[in-house]
Amino acid sequence: MARRVTNRRKAVVTVLAWLVGLAIFFPILWIVILSFKSEGDAIKTPFEVLGSAWTFESYATVQERSNYFRHFWNSVVISLGSTLIGLLIAIPAAWAMAFVPGKRTKDVLMWMLSTKMLPPVGVLVPIYLIFRNLGLLDTRFGLVIVLTLINLPIIVWMLYTYFKEIPGEILEAARMDGASLKNELIHVLTPMAVPGIASTLLLNIILAWNEAFWTLNLTAAKAAPLTAFIASYSSPEGLFYAKLSAASTMAIAPILIMGWFSQKQLVRGLTFGAVK
C-alpha cells in the first residue's frame, strides 16, 4: 500500500515541513526562552537574549507577587468542575440517545447543537445581570455553571458518537444478566466507553481552560482563572516580558500536554463527528 518515495524527495519535504512547523511553533518557544531570562535581558535583541544568562527568577517573582497559584487553582477548579458536572449530566443523556433512539432523538441532538451556536454576546447582558443579582459575579461557582452549560452540547455530542460505536447487544446481555439500569451504566457502559469518555474529558478541560469570553466578563480579582489573570498584563505600565512569559508558560503548559495527548480524538469532538 505504501507508495514508494525517493529519499531525495523525502529529504526536501522533511526540511520544508520542519521549517514551517518551527515557524508556527516559534512564538511558544520564544516565550519559554524568555521566561528563563531576567527582566532586563528579555527586552534585548534576539541574539543578546539567546546569549544571556538563564534564570528561574521570573517564575519565583510571578508566584510571590501576584498570587499566581490562586488563579491557576481557579482555572483547575473551573475547568475540571465544569467538565465533571457536564459528564455527569451528559453520560445518561448520551446513553439514552445512542441506545434507546426514538423518533425525535435526532432533533434533540440538533437542537442541543444549536444552543452552542448562540453567540455569547447575545446573552451577555442578561447573564451578567442575573449573576449580579444572585451574587455569582466573580465566583468560581458561577463560572462552573456557565462553562458547564456552554460545553454541555459538545460533551453530549462527543459521548453520543462514541457510544454509537458500542454494540447494543452487550448492554442487552447485561440486562439479561440481571443488571439494573444503574449497574448497566456503571459496570458495563462506562468502562467500555473509557477511551471516549477520557477524550471528551480532555477536550472539555482544554476548551474550558482556554475560554476567554465569560471568564473575562464575569470575574474580577477573586475568581479570575488564568485567562483573565494574564489579561491583566495587557496594561502598558506592566511590560514585564520575562514575568509575562513565565506566567504564560505555566498557563499553557498543562493544556499543551493534554492537547498533544488527545490530538487524535480532537477532530471528532471539534467537528461534532462530521469529520473522523
Binding site: 512547523g21 508556527i24 511553533f25 511558544i28 485567562t227 494574564i230 499553557i252 493544556i255 499543551l256
Partner: peptide, 16 residues
Amino acid sequence: LVIAPFFVMPTVSALV
C-alpha cells in the same frame, strides 16, 4: 509543533 497554537489561551497568544 503545528497544532500547538490551538491550545494557547487567547489572552496569552494575543499578549505574546
